[in-house]
Simulated scan of single mutants.
Amino acid sequence: MKNSLIVLLALSLYGCDFSKRIDTTAAVKEMRERQVKRVLPQDIVNQVDVWGKEIQTDLEKGDSADTLGQKNKVFIASGPTNILKQAIKDAKIINMLEAIDYGIAQKQDIPPSIQKNSTGDSLFYMFPNAKGEVTVIGFSKKQVIIQMDKPLIK
């Protein structure tokens, strides 16, 4: 009886395949990485602010706007506000450019600002440059979210 019990126990253990064990800590980590994360509007604005400051610094160092635009997948335009208003047709952005133009005319210190367009699908980082012109950096909201989540996409 004992021998048959030992044989039965040995056969049942032999049937178990321990080579396919799952590392639970790695599995939990991967599940957390693949978890859908909620991106709040404030997170998007904060990210645009960070990237806008970086691009502004690069532009002030003398880097090419075309090169920075392609590298960062953004729209960059710089010039007098009347020319920018012709290039950008969005009413909210035009109003913001007029406000910046008024501030420049009044010789006010104007900090960089972020404005959504009328449809809400893009954000524009705007600042006056040293020449008295305005630089506008346009970020697609969809592209910002993709770039924020890039480390999680495999």
Rank of each mutant, 00 (worst) to 15 (best):
Q86W: 08
S122M: 05
E33V: 03
W51V: 10
Q35G: 00
K20P: 02
Y102W: 07
L9R: 13
N129V: 07
D58G: 05
V74K: 06
D101N: 10
A77P: 06
P128R: 02
I114A: 01
D23C: 02
K71N: 13
K92W: 07
V74S: 04
F124N: 00
F75K: 14
D23W: 04
S118H: 01
D58L: 15
L59N: 03
P80Y: 15
V48E: 00
L40V: 08
D101G: 08
M31S: 09
D49A: 13
G52D: 02
F18Q: 10
L59K: 02
G15M: 12
T25M: 05
K89V: 14
V36I: 14
S19K: 09
Q86N: 14
K85N: 11
I83K: 15
K107E: 10
G52Q: 01
S19Q: 12
Q115S: 06
I93T: 03
S122G: 00
G103L: 05
E60C: 06
T24A: 05
R21T: 12
G103V: 01
N72V: 07
E54R: 15
G52C: 05
P41D: 03
A10K: 09
V28T: 11
G120A: 04
I94T: 06
K53Y: 06
L8T: 12
E60R: 12
N117V: 00
K71I: 12
K20I: 10
N46A: 11
V74P: 04
D43K: 05
V48W: 00
N72I: 07
D58Q: 14
T24K: 08
M96T: 14
Y102I: 09
T57Y: 12
D63P: 01
I76G: 07
Q108V: 05
K73N: 15
K20G: 07
I114F: 03
K20A: 09
D23K: 05
K37N: 03
A91G: 07
R34G: 10
G52E: 05
R32T: 01
K85C: 05
V45H: 09
I44E: 08
G103C: 02
E54K: 15
V28S: 08
T119G: 04
M96Q: 14
I100E: 00
T81K: 12
A27G: 00
I94L: 06
L97N: 04
N46C: 06
N129H: 05
